[in-house]
């Protein structure tokens, strides 16, 4: 109760602005309620977000869990060197880039297409139903989604049934989709699209509402049909949004996701399903090789950091709004 209404006083007597530690201390005491409201979370932030960075030192050690920090043997970049000579790591890197590339291209193309089509729907009720249905899979967990995908692709799942009906496969010759390594990227891409395509349209649909209706009228005067209007008015209208999102997504090139690969992966498709995150998990948690898996994780974080920073700056330079 006795804490003074600091803001009104300071805004009234603003001109004098003492500097220095003493001023800072006085202010801290004056604003102790604000301090109490935020500093505990600063401590939380430090512990949970900054402290783990300390763990990166392990990547440069021949880490033995039983020893203390001072007793660990330092070995420099040996683990990193090992990684880049490791066939498995190279394969994992390939899978990561391939899957995030597929996700990027497929995700953009499908979402933009769907947004364009939804934008052309004039019956508001129908549009709303399509939107509600297509957003739904975004909110279920990947565990549920993986279970559904597995059922759909199983030998007696609907996909094989359709192939049977249409005569592409014979009875008893059903395709074990998740058992064929080369199919994994496609399955991953398709299930990601199934899960998120609707949700990803939101940004584009929002951008489309900002397009000046006069442009459509002008295009129509010039004799442009629906498809031409989509191509020459709507698409250019959302171009800035597309560019920003594309640039921002480059920052996540090494984030190909973890859950779908882990949940749909199995012994047969491991050569194509294992990505960086799974590699880290398997080496680190399952085999207890902390040093190597931290080195791999560090590699990912640092590359992502650089990409994200570059992407952010690129977006800024192009005069687009940054993500943050």
């Amino acid at each position: 109760m006795d804490s003074k209404p600091t803001m009104s006083t300071s805004s009234l007597v603003l001109p004098k602005k003492p500097k220095g530690l003493k001023y800072f201390g006085i202010k801290l005491i004056e604003q102790r309620v604000l301090v109490l409201m935020s500093v505990p979370f600063l401590v939380w932030l430090f512990i949970f977000k900054y402290m783990p960075l300390w763990g990166w030192t392990i990547a440069f050690q021949d880490y033995k869990p039983a020893k203390s920090f001072g007793e660990q043997k330092w070995i420099g970049f040996d683990h990193f060197q090992f990684l880049f000579q490791d066939e498995r790591f190279i394969r994992v890197l390939r899978n990561t880039l391939a899957m995030s590339g597929i996700n990027l291209v497929l995700g953009f193309v499908t979402a933009i297409t769907l947004a364009l089509l939804l934008n052309e729907v004039r019956k508001v009720a129908f549009k709303r139903i399509v939107q509600t249905v297509s957003y739904l899979p975004h909110f279920i967990s990947w565990v549920v989604a993986a279970s559904i995908v597995q059922t759909t692709l199983s030998p007696d799942g609907i996909i094989n049934q359709i192939l049977l009906w249409t005569g592409f496969v014979e009875k008893g010759e059903e395709i074990l989709f998740l058992g064929i390594p080369e199919y994994f990227w496609g399955i991953f891409g398709a299930s990601s699209v199934w899960k998120d395509v609707g949700w990803n349209t939101i940004v584009y649909l929002a951008a489309m509402t900002m397009i000046d209706p006069a442009q459509y009228e002008a295009a129509e005067m010039d004799g442009a049909g629906r498809i031409k209007r989509m191509w020459y008015v709507t698409l250019p209208g959302i171009k800035p949004v597309i560019i920003v999102l594309l640039i921002m997504n480059i920052g996540y090139l090494l984030e190909s996701g973890f859950e779908p690969q882990y949940l749909l992966g199995n012994g047969m498709n491991v050569d194509f399903s294992e990505n960086l995150d799974i590699f880290v998990l398997k080496y680190g948690i399952a085999q207890g090789n902390y040093s190597l898996s931290i080195a791999a994780g560090m590699f990912k974080t640092i590359i992502s950091f650089i990409l994200l920073f570059a992407a952010n700056n690129l977006a800024k330079r192009m005069g687009e709004s940054r993500l943050f």
Binding site: L45, K49, M51, P52, G55, W56, V280, Y290, I294
Partner: peptide, 15 residues
């Protein structure tokens, strides 16, 4: 700042 990096799986696990 924490949007730009994270310690990663294993350091988090150890923490």
């Amino acid at each position: 700042l924490t949007m730009y990096f994270n310690g990663g799986l294993i350091p988090n696990f150890l923490l």
